[in-house]
Structures are given as C-alpha cells and as structure tokens.
C-alpha cells in the first residue's frame, strides 16, 4: 500500500496541529491564573499539608528514632544537646522560612504561625482580636475550626484558626515544666494553641 501526501494537505494538517497546541497552552495558562479557589478551601488545603508534614515528622522521626528506638533525643535545646528539633519547633521554623521566601514572591501572599493563649514565648501570644477569639474558640470547641475576616493595615484578610493539640507526653511535660509557661495543667489531648493562617482577600 502506498500513501501519498499532497503538499497542500500536509501544510494544512501541520497548521491545524500547531493551532490546536497553541490554543491548549493558552487555555492552560488562563486556567492557572483564574481565581477559582475559595479562601477557606485554600486555608484548609494549606493546613492539611502543614499538619500532615508535622505528623509525619512526629511519627517517622521523633516517635521512631527518639521514643521507640532511642538512638537520638528530641529537645528544645537541640543545638546544645545535638538533638532533634521538637515537632512544634520544626513547624515554627517552616513558618519563618515561608515568610522570608514569600517576600520575594509577590503573588504568594499568605502567612501562618503557631500561637497560644498560654505561650511559653510571649512573642507567640495572639495580637489581633480575631486571633484571640479564634484561639479561645478552638480551645473551647474541640474538633472545630474558626474562620473569620479581619482588616489589618487597610487590607482585608481571611483568617483561619485550627486547634493545636498535645499529641505526645513530651508536649505536655515541656509546657507544664517550662519556667516561662503561664499554664501548667495540660494533659494529653488538650488544645494548647492554634495554627493561624491568614490570606489577603484582594491583591
């Protein structure tokens, strides 16, 4: 069987293929930049990633190597003691790195932090009314999240707060025994603070 291609039809085919490809690329770019995700969905998704990463670190690194196999310890003073950072410290370092890197990415405009009504470090106490109300709500309504909007510096923000719970004896002992802790009656499963995620509502 012999296939012969007329040059005119070949050129038309190539042109059609190129047009289709170009249209597809433009459509993908449009879809990528079209605002489609609600702030609450975005905050929930971000928290899911943060919480999962922290859980994996707690289980696969701290629980496995420090608590179970006892090949290394985990300590607040990780530098001096050549130890693993605590899961809450890992989370906080991540938040600080995100804040720093986001300064160079104007389109990536959100922030998150770990705060508490009973902070060991006073820098981690709530500052805005929304933060104070949200941390109180998640502490008193276990299993529920807090969502609100607030205006800060002339910008409207969507603010979500998720409970931060004592998941291991080390969380409880560290907070109850710390010299700077304002509360010393925590027990496992108690809400110790909250993760605050803030997303601007306009660019």
């Amino acid at each position: 069987m012999q296939i012969t291609l007329n040059k005119k039809w070949l050129a038309l085919g190539v042109a059609a293929a190129l047009t289709t490809t170009a249209t597809f690329v433009v459509a993908v770019e449009d879809a990528a930049n079209k605002p489609m995700i609600a702030p609450k969905t975005m905050a929930d998704a971000l928290h899911l990633v943060m919480d999962s990463d922290r859980t994996v670190y707690t289980r696969k690194i701290v629980n496995r190597l420090a608590a179970k196999e006892k090949v290394i310890t985990a300590s607040e003073h990780f530098d001096d003691e050549k130890a693993l950072v605590l899961p809450a410290q890992m989370f906080r370092f991540g938040a600080e790195m995100v804040a720093k890197r986001a300064e160079k990415l104007p389109d990536v405009n959100f922030s998150y932090s770990l705060q508490s009504l009973w902070p060991v470090n006073t820098q981690n106490a709530p500052k805005t009314d929304a933060e104070k109300a949200g941390l109180k709500f998640v502490a008193e309504n276990k299993g529920k999240n807090f969502y609100t909007t607030e205006e800060l510096g002339g910008t409207n923000y969507f603010t979500a707060i998720y409970a931060d719970t004592a998941v291991a004896p080390v969380c409880v002992s560290c907070h109850n025994d710390h010299k700077d802790s304002p509360r010393r009656d925590f027990k496992l499963g108690d809400v110790m603070g909250g993760v605050v995620i803030r997303i601007p509502l306009e660019s």
Binding site: T58, G143, T165, L188, G189
Partner: peptide
C-alpha cells in the same frame, strides 16, 4: 477524663 481527648477525635492517630 484521660482518653477522650485523643480517642474522641482521632488525635495523633
């Protein structure tokens, strides 16, 4: 008093 804080919510698995 002791268990519900985690087992009531699936905390820490």
């Amino acid at each position: 008093g002791t268990c519900e804080g985690c087992h009531g919510y699936g905390t820490a698995g």
